[in-house]
Amino acid sequence: MRLEISLGRLRNEFVAKITELSGQDINLCYQCGKCSAGCPMSFIMDLLPNQVIRSVQLGLAEDITSSRTPWLCASCLVCTVRCPKGIDIASVMEAVRQIALRRSEDFIDPAGLERDTVAELPPIALVCGFRKLTG
């Protein structure tokens, strides 16, 4: 279906929230793709990082919220340090996660983790994972 681009879509609440939470000016992005080129987790992402940013630019809230990409972002910050325009892309991903987590939409269920898995993981992995993937 053809995507309708309109003032309402470009300035929707979701875009405003992401801008507010991430503190990033999404319009700086000229879609060079360097974030996606260097992303270590791109190989399992449904949207590349530059496509997430593009979706924010076009106000495609539903495309972003239904994407697994923000949850697969490991916050390694390679995108952030190499972005030619100085956009902290990792913070944009965090903003997307936060919007979901604040609605109690957790990405993982800690109670559902296997006992053995929990036992073998170091505390740093568990705390880190729960901080990033649960609210």
């Binding site: 793709g33 360097k34 996606s36 992303c39 590349l48």
Partner: peptide
């Protein structure tokens, strides 16, 4: 797309890029 990284791997240079 831009190239994020280039490094040597044996006889070749690995060019890590994107095709947006």
């Amino acid at each position: 797309g831009k190239v994020s990284r280039i490094y040597r791997d044996g006889d070749k240079l690995k060019v890590m890029g994107v095709d947006t």
